[in-house]
């Protein structure tokens, strides 16, 4: 029982990070129907930015975390303008943008390798105080609290932004119907740029948390999370912020329960088996959003 509880805590912490990653990815899909795989490289860059800010410039975490997230957001906006925006007028723009994003992702990954001189780096020691507490027989570490706290706050802020503000309404309108939104006074390009920014920020936050928790930063880091985040997104049903969070948690929990009760070797088998199963039983995902309200 205790093992179950402990593995649940692990799974939640991990799942929140998947959810952050997946949410950024699905924001872009909702906005442009573009499969922006370079998102993974933007994620990796997020961790690298955090390393630059802390290890090289000696900034504390409270500055470096938002700083790295903002830089990742800006990088993603650049991705939009360089890789995707100019393909807008093509008939096959979704496919073209996907290929363009694949290429951009490869270049960004290579640039990290160069930037890091082909080695794995890590955030400096003592950046975040390491503690752990026993609560009802469960061990909870300060890192886990940080992950759940930061990711939780980010998710809530994003939810509020999407539902309560003009920006959120504009993003949702563009996601629903780009042409109509422009008739209603919404600049679709600036909204897309904003969406890429938000998406990059989410990736950046997730990356810094991962870098802190797993003490490892390298160029390919994001790729490992891409597939898991996609799974989270499909499980959650593409739809709401809520769906993606639940999808992320399901993947995180599946991952830690498999390690607990089977073996870590079966982890991917279980996660993707689950994905297949859900797609067969409930093709619309666990939390399908009515088609009249598709996306975001």
């Amino acid at each position: 029982m205790q093992l179950l509880g402990q593995q649940t805590i692990n799974g939640i912490a991990l799942g929140m990070v998947f959810a952050l990653f997946a949410m950024g990815f699905s924001l872009v899909i909702a906005n442009l129907s573009v499969f922006h795989v370079a998102h993974a490289a933007v994620f990796s860059w997020g961790a690298v930015f955090a390393w630059d800010l802390t290890d090289r410039f000696g900034l504390p975490l409270v500055v470096a975390l938002p700083g790295a997230a903002l830089l990742a957001g800006v990088l993603n906006v650049l991705c939009y303008f360089v890789l995707i925006r100019h393909l807008d007028s093509r008939r096959d723009k979704e496919l073209a943008a996907f290929i363009s994003s694949v290429g951009g992702g490869i270049i960004l990954t290579e640039l990290i390798s160069k930037h890091l001189n082909y080695v794995t780096v890590r955030l400096p020691d003592g950046l975040f105080p390491i503690r752990s507490w026993r609560v009802w027989g469960l061990q909870i570490s300060s890192i886990q609290l940080l992950i759940v706290g930061v990711a939780g706050v980010t998710v809530v802020l994003l939810g509020l932004l999407m539902t309560r503000t003009q920006i959120g309404r504009e993003v949702r309108a563009v996601a629903y119907d780009r042409e109509l939104a422009s008739m209603l006074g919404v600049g679709a390009t600036s909204v897309s740029a904003l969406v890429f920014f938000l998406s990059g920020v989410l990736a950046g936050v997730a990356a810094v948390l991962i870098a802190l928790a797993f003490s490892q930063i390298d160029s390919r880091q994001g790729n490992a999370y891409l597939v898991l985040a996609l799974t989270a997104m499909v499980l959650g049903g593409f739809g709401s912020v809520k769906g993606v969070v639940v999808g992320g948690l399901v993947v995180g929990l599946a991952s830690s329960y498999t390690t607990a009760y089977l073996s870590s070797g079966y982890r991917n088998v279980v996660i993707f088996g689950l994905l297949m199963l859900v797609l067969v039983v409930r093709p619309q995902g666990l939390f399908a959003v009515p088609s009249s309200e598709i996306r975001v």
Binding site: Q166, R172, Y176, L184, G185, S292, E293, I294
Partner: peptide, 20 residues
């Protein structure tokens, strides 16, 4: 009759009210 189906009636109005 294209409306932004993912927004409520008032959100539709507010969206244009502010964006315009």
């Amino acid at each position: 009759r294209r409306v932004v189906a993912s927004l409520t009636v008032e959100e539709n109005l507010e969206l244009t009210g502010r964006a315009s």
